[in-house]
Amino acid sequence: KKYKVVEVKENKDGTVELVVENENGEKKKITLSKEELDKLKAGDTVELK
């Protein structure tokens, strides 16, 4: 499934919390490390299994 990044929030521990949404409007929260996030920004599309 493809999800669009709608919100990006940095946590104090250096991880980043993303809120992503698919075309049905379903939202998910995922947490990434700073390194994983470096290639993402709001409006990008991510694929989740």
Rank of each mutant, 00 (worst) to 15 (best):
A42G: 03
V5T: 01
I30G: 01
I30D: 00
N11A: 07
V20C: 07
L37W: 11
K12C: 15
K4V: 12
L18I: 11
V6F: 05
E17T: 09
G14L: 03
L18K: 00
E36K: 12
D13A: 04
V16L: 06
K1W: 04
E35S: 13
E23T: 07
K4A: 04
G43L: 02
N22W: 09
K27R: 11
K27V: 11
L18N: 00
A42C: 13
D44Q: 03
L48M: 05
K2V: 12
E10S: 08
E23F: 05
T15H: 06
G25L: 03
K28M: 14
K2A: 06
E36G: 15
V19I: 09
D44M: 04
L18S: 00
V46L: 14
K4S: 04
S33N: 13
Y3R: 00
K28A: 07
L18P: 00
E17A: 07
K2G: 03
E10N: 09
G43V: 01
N24R: 11
D44G: 03
E7K: 12
D13Y: 03
T45K: 04
V6L: 11
A42K: 08
K1M: 10
N24S: 12
V5C: 15
V5H: 01
L40E: 01
D44P: 00
G43D: 03
E36Y: 15
G14A: 02
K39V: 10
V19H: 09
D38N: 13
E21K: 05
E23D: 08
N24G: 09
S33Q: 14
L18G: 00
V6N: 02
V6M: 10
K28L: 14
D13G: 03
E21Q: 08
G25E: 03
E36F: 15
K27Q: 13
K39W: 05
E17M: 12
K1D: 13
L48Q: 03
D44Y: 02
E21M: 08
L37G: 15
E23G: 10
L32Y: 05
V20N: 00
K12G: 11
T45N: 06
E26G: 06
L48E: 05
E36C: 12
L40H: 08
E26H: 09
D13V: 02
A42I: 15
V5K: 00
E36H: 15
K49M: 15
K12E: 10
K49Y: 09
K4C: 15
G14T: 02
D38C: 14
K12H: 10
A42Q: 06
V5A: 01
E17I: 10
L48K: 01
K41Q: 08
G25Q: 03
V19A: 03
L40M: 06
K1L: 12
T15M: 08
G14C: 14
D44C: 07
E47F: 10
K12W: 10
L48P: 01
T15F: 05
K12T: 09
E7Q: 08
E23Y: 05
N22A: 13
L40I: 14
T15G: 04
N11M: 10
E23A: 09
V20M: 06
K12L: 08
L37T: 15
V6A: 02
T45A: 04
D44K: 02
E35K: 12
K9S: 08
N24F: 14
K12R: 08
K28D: 04
D13F: 03
L37R: 14
E36L: 12
L40F: 14
A42N: 13
K34Q: 08
D38L: 08
K49W: 06
V19K: 02
K39L: 05
N11D: 04
L37H: 08
T15L: 06
E26F: 06
L48T: 02
V8Q: 04
G25N: 05
V8T: 04
K41H: 07
N24C: 15
K34E: 11
V19L: 11
K49F: 09
L32K: 03
K1P: 06
K28I: 14
I30R: 00
K41M: 07
E36N: 15
K4Y: 11
T31R: 05
E36P: 12
E21C: 13
N24V: 08
Y3S: 01
Y3I: 04
E17C: 15
A42P: 15
N24H: 11
G25K: 04
A42W: 04
D13E: 03
E7Y: 08
N22F: 06
D13K: 01
E23S: 10
V20D: 00
V46P: 04
E7N: 07
N11K: 08
K39N: 15
Y3C: 10
E35V: 13
L18T: 02
L32I: 14
K41C: 11
D13T: 02
N11L: 11
N24P: 01
G25D: 01
V46Y: 02
K2W: 07
V20I: 10
L37S: 15
E47G: 02
L40A: 10
V19E: 08
G43M: 05
E26D: 12
L32F: 10
K41S: 06
T15Y: 12
D13C: 09
L48Y: 02
D13R: 02
K39C: 13
V5I: 10
E21I: 08
V16N: 02
Y3E: 01
K2T: 11
G14K: 02
V16P: 00
E23W: 06
T15N: 05
T45L: 14
K12N: 13
E26P: 00
A42Y: 04
A42D: 11
V6K: 04
K2Y: 09
V19Q: 05
L48F: 11
K49P: 15
G14F: 02
I30F: 14
N22C: 14
E47P: 09
T31S: 10
V46F: 09
L18E: 00
V5W: 02
L32S: 05
D44W: 01
V46Q: 02
N24W: 12
V19P: 00
Y3W: 09
K4I: 14
E47T: 05
I30P: 00
V46R: 00
A42V: 15
L18R: 00
V16H: 05
N11Q: 09
T31V: 11
K34Y: 11
V19M: 07
L32D: 00
N11E: 04
T15E: 04
V46W: 04
E21P: 00
L32C: 07
K1N: 09
K39R: 12
D38T: 12
V8H: 03
E7D: 08
V8D: 00
E17N: 10
V20K: 00
N11H: 14
K9P: 00
N22G: 14
E10M: 10
V6C: 13
E17Y: 12
V16Q: 03
V8R: 06
K28E: 05
K34N: 10
Y3P: 01
I30K: 01
E17G: 06
K9Q: 11
E7S: 13
V8P: 00
N11T: 09
V8K: 05
N11Y: 08
K4R: 09
T31K: 12
K1I: 13
V20R: 00
T45P: 03
L18V: 07
K4P: 01
L48V: 05
L48D: 12
V16S: 04
N11R: 06
